[in-house]
Design a binder for these strands. Structure first.
Lengths: 360, 360
DNA sequence: CTGAAAGCGCTTACAG
DNA sequence: CTGAAAGCGCTTACAG
């Protein structure tokens, strides 16, 4: 359990770690044999069960830990899979990170995730770092410039897959943003009609104009309006970034009706909307109803919330790992349907929010 | 920008990457010189500016990327810092992950975080994997058995620091759970008195009996009660894990008063409490008020919420990185005060929640 | 101002 | 059934 060298050296990490040479010496065999036993290829090499057992035991006694840097350097594959992602601080990205790790480990891959704060420079730097780490594959999640990452990796012979935001130089997995937004918009429109008796276009708030997801969601938003013969005035579409502050400012300076509905384009933006409500006491079953793209269990309980479009992270990651196996062509784009959730009051179940199944 | 070998090989990652040998050959110099130029030690070696420039240019042209596995293998320090953490799926751990990454990078360290799902087995396995990765240092965040990780790392000469949950074999940084819980309890007690006119002990729900944080928070909870001469009946203390389901079940099966207060021991547990409220329509300014340890911006808007104790992640990480520099003794335990937040209605500011400064 | 050489700890044909 | 040897791509004293 202890290599006897003592661990309390204040000066630094200068303990000499046990290597396969040390073990070979103790076991009276060769480093090759130790390596084979310890990495599981010993049956192929027809090493005796007895020797294998002895080596394994000694390795444990000595607290041997494989030096992965050396191992990876020698092998042609690293079995490291990298992921870059913008943030960890909401349920959506948090869930992606967790499931990516779990699925990777399940396949014997070592996941390394790095978070790039939505900064294009950091994205590229992080991708470069992962290339230096010899990742076998890189998942670019929500990257502002996925094609740049694809190119950078392609030059090093590393495959990439885009997640959440699509690119043209690697296969991509995204939510069905159009469908999710259209269904969510339908719900908000029908609720303000039922509760307020108003039949007016909604406000759309949050997102980036350059962003594929925002464009698609806006398209779904417009579609649902068009179904009712409604046209959305340009000044009701407020796309100035996802940041909460922007949303709050925008609402603050606008001239808003007594009773209206908002399509909120992310829980991040929703924080700003909620702050504004609180400040202006517009909340609490007053004249505002909103729906939000993305799911958050607490936001779901807010009384003005009439629906949330949850992105289906498990299926998205399933699709990603399928792509890892199938190696589809670069221009493939898989869209995963969203899960629409509406508050309990209109359903018979005991759940506070339930899933609804709208026509595709 | 391209090494000319083409990146579209469907078969795998079999492109031969550019190495310092390739560059040396093109530049008509030695690999040593290339290495020195590329890793910045060339001034020390008095390599001519001219050669340095040429090498740098060629490296760029060839799309050279350092092989970190080889580099780390050769050096004595890896500059990799590892962190294990239970989950990514709440604001607290998400914030820790982000700030750990940012601060690491700022120091030229490469952060690798891995999430262990609160499973003791996975914790140990993850720690082992990070040891194999030659991390220079490991932060064990919210580990169920931090001392086991400390030992495992110590045997490999790797320093560890405990975060969130303390251990005895490495220095630890934790929140002032006692103080935060006491202050939060005071607030809940005073609110149910002000709003309901009741002067009864609160319910404490969530956490693990074996968990240092739960014990400390319970101590603070009791202290605030004692200040008012109140004693908490044993059956009002429900400690059966953090999981939302457990809380929901427990509340469901209990005989509860008309008007009462709850101390909720984490936002994870709070989800269960909120589900129960919703099911039983106890919410909405009815007979329940709660306070919650940990902060969540949406949960903060729930009308029954009378306060949240936010753990001060920036200061916690500042303390961690101080420890990295100072190398304090293993038994040191730094407690970082929490930030108490109460709803706006009792404050004059425009913020929905504000910080309060209670006597320590 | 610069290069030859050793070696970090593994893996893997190759040769018994 | 097993071992000697080469080599992965770097870094770094050492010797000019």
């Amino acid at each position: 359990m202890d290599n006897g060298s003592g661990a309390g050296n204040g000066a630094g990490n200068s303990i000499k770690r046990t290597t396969i040479y040390d073990i070979a010496e103790i076991a009276g065999t060769s480093p090759s044999a130790v390596s084979a036993v310890l990495n599981g290829t010993w049956k192929k090499r027809r090493i005796s069960e007895k020797l294998a057992e002895r080596i394994t035991r000694i390795a444990e006694e000595q607290g041997y830990a494989l030096n992965l840097q050396a191992s990876v350097l020698r092998r042609e594959r690293s079995n490291i899979v990298g992921m870059i992602m913008p943030k960890y601080d909401n349920r959506y990205f948090g869930a992606i990170a967790e499931q990516f790790e779990a699925r990777s480990r399940q396949r014997g891959l070592f996941p390394v995730i790095t978070c790039t704060q939505r900064e294009p420079e950091l994205e590229v730097e992080a991708a470069r770092a992962l290339v230096s780490y010899q990742v076998d594959l890189l998942i670019a999640t929500g990257a502002t410039d996925p094609d740049r990452i694809s190119e950078l990796c392609a030059a090093a012979g590393i495959r990439t897959i885009n997640l959440d935001l699509p690119g043209s130089r690697s296969p991509s997995v995204v939510s069905d943003n159009f469908g999710g937004a259209r269904d969510l918009t339908r719900i908000i429109l029908s609720r303000i009609r039922a509760e307020f008796g108003v039949r007016e276009p909604l406000y759309f708030i949050g997102g980036r104009a350059s962003d594929h997801n925002t464009a698609e969601r806006l398209r779904g938003f417009r579609e649902a309006h068009a179904e009712l013969g409604l046209e959305v005035p340009a000044d009701q579409i407020i796309i100035r970034g996802y940041a909460a502050e922007k949303a709050e400012e925008a609402l603050e300076t606008m001239d808003l009706p007594e009773r209206f509905g908002i399509f909120v384009n992310s829980t991040i933006t929703l924080e700003g909307v909620v702050r504004w409500m609180q400040r202006n006491k517009r909340g609490g079953r007053s004249g505002l109803r909103f729906g939000c793209f993305d799911w958050d269990s607490f936001a779901a309980r807010l009384p003005e919330n009439v629906g949330m479009a949850e992105q289906d992270v498990p299926h998205m990651l399933e699709a990603v790992f399928e792509m890892i196996d199938m190696q589809p062509s670069a221009n493939i784009l898989r869209k995963i349907p969203c899960i629409l959730r509406v508050p309990d009051e209109w359903s018979r179940t005991g759940e506070a929010f339930r899933e609804v199944n709208l026509a595709g």
